[in-house]
Nucleic acid binder design. Structure first.
Lengths: 174, 174
DNA sequence: TAAGATTGACTCTTCAATCTTC
DNA sequence: GAAGATTGAAGAGTCAATCTTA
C-alpha cells in the first residue's frame, strides 16, 4: 500500500504450518484468522487514510462526522460517540478538539444535563463528510477485489465474530 | 472487551441501510465489510493485549519475538522484520529498543554488511515467547466462537483480500 | 456516589530528515 | 546515489486521576 514490498510467499500460511508442526493444531486456524484480520485491517486503514489525507481528515475523525451526519439534527453527546466507536473518553475529546479546530464541529452544552457536552456538525463539516464519502465509495469500498456474493459471505461470518465479542446482543445475529 | 457497553442493535447493519437508502448501493456491502474488519480487529487486539499485559509484552513486540523464534538461529536483520510485519523502520527500531531493554533481544552487527543490524533472541526472550504462545492459544485462538469449517471459510476469503492488496503474489492464492 | 468530560503520562505508529556504509 | 537504521515531531490510542454536576 505504501512503500512496503510484497513477499514471495504467504507469511500467514507459513505461520500456520509452524503452528501445526508444533502440536498446536487446535489453535492454528484461529491464529491464522486473527493474524489475517489484523493484516487486512492494516491494509484497509492505510487505503482510507490515503484517500482522506487531502481532506485533512483522519479515519477516526471521519467516523465521528459520519455519526453526526446520520444522527437526527446532527448532534450527539460525546459519550454516545465513544460508545458507538468503542473508544475511550479521552479519544473522543481528542477527535472533537481537532474537528472543532478545523471548523467541522461545534461544542454545545446539553440543554438539561450540564455534565454532558454535545458535538454538533457544521455546514463545513457536512461538506467535508460528503466529499469523504464520495472518495471512499469510489476508491475503496467498490474496489475490494471480491465478488458481491463473496463479500456477503465474508460480512455474515464477521457478524458472528462481532456478536461473540459482545459488540451487540446475540438475538440479532440471524 | 474492556469497560465498553454493548449496543442494543448492530451498528454496522444500521450504517449499511443508510448507505443503501442514500443511493450508494454498489458501495454498501464494501463499506460494511471494511467496517466489520476494523471492528473485529479492534476486539482481537484488545483480547491479545490483555493476555500479554502480565508478560509486559505488546502485540507488536510479541510478533517480533515470534519471527525471531521461528527463524533459523534466532536472528533477523531489522529490515526483514519490518518487511514481514509491514511496518515502517521507525516502528522496528522502537520495538527492538524495548525488547533489548527487557533483555529479550540483543542487537548484533551483521558479519559482512556493516550497515545492517541483527536482532537476536535471548533465552529470556524464548521463555517469554513460549509463555505468550500458551496464553494466546488457550485464551484467544481457540475461543473465537466459530466452528472450524467456518473459520476455514473466513480464512480463505481473507486470503483473497490480502492477495488483492498485494500482500503476496497472486499465483499463491489457491 | 456515580456519570460525563477533560487532562496528563505513556505507548505505538507514520513521516521526514539524517548518518553511516555499500 | 541507494540501502539500512536511527532520530525527532506529530497523530491517535489507552489508562488513571481529576473536576464538575446529577
Amino acid at each position: 500500500v505504501t512503500g512496503r514490498k510484497a513477499l514471495p510467499f504467504d507469511p500467514i500460511d507459513e505461520a500456520r504450518k509452524r503452528w501445526e508442526s508444533s502440536g498446536w493444531d487446535d489453535a492454528a486456524i484461529g491464529m491464522a484468522v486473527v493474524t489475517s484480520v489484523v493484516r487486512v485491517q492494516q491494509v484497509f486503514v492505510s487505503m482510507i487514510d490515503q484517500e482522506l489525507r487531502p481532506l485533512e481528515l483522519s479515519m477516526a475523525r471521519y467516523e465521528v462526522l459520519m455519526l453526526l451526519m446520520f444522527s437526527k439534527s446532527g448532534e450527539l453527546p460525546l459519550g454516545k460517540i465513544g460508545a458507538r466507536l468503542q473508544v475511550q473518553p479521552g479519544a473522543v475529546t481528542n477527535a472533537i478538539d481537532r474537528l472543532v479546530a478545523d471548523g467541522c464541529v461545534k461544542r454545545v452544552p446539553h440543554p438539561t444535563d450540564r455534565r454532558t457536552t454535545l458535538a454538533v456538525i457544521t455546514a463545513k463539516g457536512r461538506t467535508k463528510a460528503e466529499k469523504a464519502v464520495q472518495l471512499l465509495n469510489a476508491h475503496v469500498y467498490v474496489k475490494l477485489g471480491l465478488a458481491q456474493d463473496k463479500l456477503e459471505e465474508l460480512f455474515e461470518l464477521m457478524r458472528v465474530v462481532r456478536c461473540q465479542a459482545g459488540d451487540f446482543p446475540e438475538d440479532l445475529v440471524g
